[in-house]
Every structure is written in structure tokens, then in C-alpha cells.
């Protein structure tokens, strides 16, 4: 892909050392690129390593995690930095909006102060300038600036998530990680938050990495998609290609399991649209099968899948998939 990538994740491997159980391989050879102004979707079932990937990039995993591989931000290898150097990149360049802002804001600190803190911490502005900036940021996400003096418990769930977004934008980062930003919100508020993210991206031109399991959100928001399964990249490509011509059996099943609003049930036949589901569960990370990780649940598996892990292969322009059947 193009050389001008903002963030390049190369062969990211993450494992957690669990006492008495051995290592849990959470990520294996995960690679993707994020370009300026692009929205990349990271999709997959719960536990497939989406959040772990973000946390690995930010180096915010607990101490029992072992990370290898490389992550380049504008040609700087983040894994080669000292902890102190890394801190300068966090929030300043790579900001994150966490899943469920209910608890991601400090309950005993005023919201405005929590935003201001992010700005002054990186020494971007004086205290009084930062104060102004906090007001601007809050208004950008549709919160009256006076409410910056309030505490998180005085906010509704949607407001907290928007405040969290305002906080993430405080240092004008190049990349915004959004880790299931709408999961805990009701549908109306979800739409508002997504619209806000879209709007902000268009205005500020930042890149967004959106972690979600909601394919509808991906279709609406993303330019590129990384489909993850069991800690590996199953398929990677532009959103319209993936949605119209999925190559990996997992992606195919995933798309089938999602209701299609364009082809609703035909009322004359009264046949209700039954959604497909994928039988079985994702592999335990401590007991990774030697072959393809999706093999036990795959509907088109062959003998080879049991023993050999398929590499990511070029299956079209900017389109990669990992399946033995694609030859």
C-alpha cells in the first residue's frame, strides 16, 4: 500500500503470560496501515484481539503482556522508544476513546479539568489558553461550555461519550482510536456519536481507527476494513470490496449474520428473514489450533486447514485474505 502511511503496524505479536497456563497468544502477525484522513475499521467477535491491538500500539497493556513486531508512527518505531519518549506520543499523536465512557472519566474531577489536563500535560498551551480551548472542544461536540464545570455523574451517557471525544481531540492528534465508542449507548445516541466522529474527521482531517463488532457501523463509517479472527487478520481491504466480494469464509459468514436492510422480508410470502449464525466459539487463546484458527467452525474447510495456518494472500487490488481455498 501507499508509502505515506501515518501508522504502520508490522507483524504485531502480543501474548499474555498467564501463571500455570502458559502464554495466551492474543495477537499473531497483525499488520495494517492507517493513512491520513482514513477511517479503518477493526472488526471481529469479542476476544479476537481488537482492543488488544490498540493497547499494544499505545503500549498500555498490563505488565504480563509480551509484545513484538514494529509499529511505525510517521517512521518512528514506537516500540523502540523509552517509556518516557512514548508518553509524548500518547494523546498528543495517538488519542483514544474508550469503550463505555461511563467509567473512563474520573468521577471526582470536573470534566473541563480532565480535558484541560490533557492539553497542559503536553505543554501545548498556557493554562488560560487551555481553558479557552476546553470551551471550544466542548462546543465542538455539542456540549455547552459551562457544563465543563460539572462532574461526569451530572452527564448523560451520550454526553460522557462526547466529552470523551472532546478530550481525545484536545491535543489535535493525528490518529484517533475509537474502541467501540457506541457500544454502551442507545441507538439514537449511537447515531449522534458516529455522526459527530464523521463530522470531526471531515473538519480536522484526522485518521480514525474504529474498533467495532457492528458491521453496520463499519459500512457507514470506514474506508478500509481489517477483519480479525482469533488474534489474526483474516481479511483486509477496502470496505466496498470486503462487503461485496468477501473472500474469507469467516467474513462471508459474518456478513450473512448481519440483517440486510436493503432486502427486507417480502411481506407477501411472509417468510421471515432468518439470520445466519456461526456455530461454535472462537478458539481459546491458550489453546490455539496449529492450522487455520477458523477451521473448527468453517463450512468449507479442507484437510490442509487442520495442520497448516494459511498466510495472508493478495486476492485483488489492496485486498488480502488468509484462506487455503484462495489459490
Amino acid at each position: 500500500m501507499a508509502e505515506s502511511a501515518l501508522l504502520r503496524v508490522c507483524n504485531l505479536n502480543t501474548e499474555f503470560i498467564i501463571p500455570d497456563k502458559g502464554p495466551a497468544r492474543a495477537l499473531e502477525d497483525v499488520s495494517f496501515e492507517v493513512h491520513p484522513g482514513e477511517t479503518l475499521g477493526l472488526v471481529g467477535e469479542s476476544g479476537c484481539g481488537k482492543t488488544t491491538a490498540l493497547m499494544s500500539i499505545l503500549r498500555l497493556l498490563p505488565s504480563n503482556a509480551r509484545i513484538s513486531g514494529q509499529v511505525f508512527f510517521k517512521d518512528v518505531d514506537l516500540f523502540g522508544l523509552s517509556e518516557k519518549q512514548m508518553r509524548a506520543y500518547r494523546w498528543r499523536e495517538l488519542a483514544i476513546v474508550f469503550q463505555g465512557a461511563m467509567n473512563a472519566l474520573n468521577p471526582v474531577m470536573r470534566v473541563g479539568e480532565q480535558i484541560r489536563e490533557a492539553i497542559t500535560l503536553h505543554g501545548l498551551m498556557s493554562s488560560s489558553e487551555a481553558e479557552m480551548r476546553v470551551g471550544e472542544l466542548l462546543e465542538l461536540v455539542g456540549i455547552p461550555k459551562e457544563r465543563g464545570a460539572q462532574y461526569p455523574f451530572q452527564y448523560s451517557g451520550g454526553m460522557r461519550q462526547r466529552a470523551m471525544i472532546a478530550m481525545a481531540l484536545a491535543c489535535s492528534p493525528s490518529v484517533l482510536f475509537a474502541d467501540e465508542p457506541t457500544t454502551a449507548l442507545d441507538v439514537m445516541v449511537q447515531a449522534q456519536v458516529l455522526e459527530l466522529l464523521n463530522d470531526i474527521q471531515q473538519r480536522l482531517g484526522l485518521a480514525i481507527v474504529l474498533v467495532t463488532h457492528d458491521l453496520g457501523v463499519v459500512a457507514e463509517m470506514c474506508d478500509t476494513v481489517v477483519v480479525m479472527y482469533g488474534g489474526k487478520v483474516a481479511e483486509y481491504g477496502p470496505v466496498d470490496v470486503i462487503f461485496n466480494d468477501p473472500q474469507h469464509p469467516y467474513t462471508q459468514k459474518l456478513l450473512e449474520s448481519f440483517p440486510d436492510l436493503n432486502e427486507p422480508t417480502d411481506p407477501s410470502t411472509d417468510s421471515r428473514q432468518v439470520l445466519a449464525s456461526i456455530p461454535g466459539a472462537p478458539p481459546r487463546l491458550t489453546e490455539i489450533p496449529p492450522g487455520c484458527r477458523f477451521e473448527p467452525r468453517c463450512h468449507v474447510r479442507i484437510e490442509k486447514c487442520k495442520t497448516e495456518s494459511p498466510p495472508l494472500m493478495d486476492v485483488g487490488e489492496n485486498h488480502l485474505a488468509a484462506c487455503h481455498l484462495l489459490k
Binding site: L58, L60, K84, R87, A88, Y89, R90, W91, R92, A95, I96, F98, G100, N103, A104, L105, N106, P107, E117, A118, L121, H122
Partner: peptide, 16 residues
């Protein structure tokens, strides 16, 4: 708690 992770993600040192 999650807000501690937020604080770390902001780039704060352990002491901060």
C-alpha cells in the same frame, strides 16, 4: 478503574 487507563493513555507518568 477505566479512568486510570485514560490517564495513562493521556501520556501521564505513573506518579502523575
Amino acid at each position: 478503574e477505566d479512568y486510570i487507563l485514560t490517564a495513562k493513555a493521556k501520556g501521564m507518568s505513573h506518579w502523575q
